[in-house]
Nucleic acid binder design. Structure first.
Lengths: 205, 205
DNA sequence: CCGGCATGTAAACGCATGTTGACTTAGGTT
DNA sequence: AACCTAAGTCAACATGCGTTTACATGCCGG
């Protein structure tokens, strides 16, 4: 009974899960407002009305995507508490292989303001939640002024990888052909480690 | 006769320009598909039908935004040919002050795939055009395999700033409050310069 | 075997969108 | 002053959207 089928119909839980999966891909690549529930339903192969029935509304489906994303983004799954290097490695591992809208971190980063007020509020809440979790993993406290720059650098690192995802997937601009994955990853990782580990000497001298 | 008024109506050229300006803000913050021509017209304070009359269609207005962006992105206005440092400085100067959808580079970076096939083609063309111009300014030739890594690093630099724009504007996540502009800019600039200047030693041992 | 319920479908509604055609008004020319 | 053309408005349209209501279908316990 715990073994859930993934392909056929007549399984509400499975259908819900496949709807969320398809919705995450659409939301990540096209944005909230440009995504239509009819397309999501067609991706799964079910009727549109099921979305309203299961999730109440398009925003409910979006919220389901985000809540599942938050669960999967449990920092303990992203990195073990400890060194910054591990954090960087895991983040790079999560992001650098593209395109993969199923990755919850990618989904979180790819989402943008869409003009829809409530959807934007959901997204903002999720992002702030993740930032707090990330800070907690790294042992940083936002209230501690000496560790704030580290949190800022984490944001820069995330932003860098967000931009890479954008360039390589959403914009259609591909890296130069001869650049191997190692060529791409290595200097990026070095820069990120430098950003994260090099303190700005807040009170030093 | 060359002095064009900027506020009142009954001036076709001025109205067209204000429509393009308003459209660029909407497109940059909400994306192509989520932006409605009625909102753009309301921003300017004119009737919706003028958009269809002046630009043919919503896509025509989008194309007008992009062509103007390409003109303003003349690399000679972004940086004088020469050192990579100048390029980085100018790019940071263009991006780091936020939010400013009027900046053509920001507009270019903020645009994303929107599910609209023709609009995506326009955006992709513009991005490729800018990448080529950027490579030309830096004296890089895509055909030269030894300079390809530099072009890749330029893309990384652009991606980084794109991500910063995303985080700081679109996602609503603000940098930590105590971080001054210098705190934000300095380590970023160092990292970007390192990325751009440090060659990956393509054939070096 | 069969009723009942969960699962899925089909069609329609109300609304917002992009676009179009006919109409109105301002401003310069004769 | 009369007029004409450009500049702008207004109302309507076809379409696609999210959502709802009514209907069909498979599955399980008696």
């Amino acid at each position: 009974m715990d073994n859930q089928q993934t392909t056929t119909g007549r399984d509400a839980a499975g259908t819900r899960r496949r709807l969320v999966q398809a919705a995450r891909r659409r939301f990540a690549t096209e944005g909230f407002r440009a995504t239509t529930v009819r397309h999501i339903a067609a991706d799964v192969g079910v009727n549109v009305a099921l979305i309203s029935r299961y999730f109440g509304s398009k925003e409910g489906l979006f919220e389901a995507c985000m809540s599942r994303t938050v669960d999967e983004l449990d920092p303990r799954r992203i990195t073990r508490p400890g060194t910054v290097d591990e954090l960087v490695d895991r983040l790079i591992g999560h992001i650098i292989e593209l395109p993969n809208p199923d990755d919850p971190l990618q989904l979180l980063l790819l989402l943008r303001s869409s003009g829809d007020e409530r959807a934007d509020a959901i997204r903002r809440r999720t992002l702030e939640s993740f930032t707090e979790r990330l800070a907690g993993v790294a042992g940083w406290r936002a209230e501690d002024p000496t560790t704030e720059p580290l949190l800022l650098r984490a944001q820069i690192a995330i932003a860098t990888m967000l931009g890479l995802v954008m360039l390589r997937t959403s914009t259609g601009v591909q890296p130069v052909t001869s650049a191997t994955s190692a060529d791409f990853t290595e200097p990026l990782g070095q820069a990120l480690r430098a950003l994260l580990t090099t303190a700005p000497a807040p009170t030093q001298e």
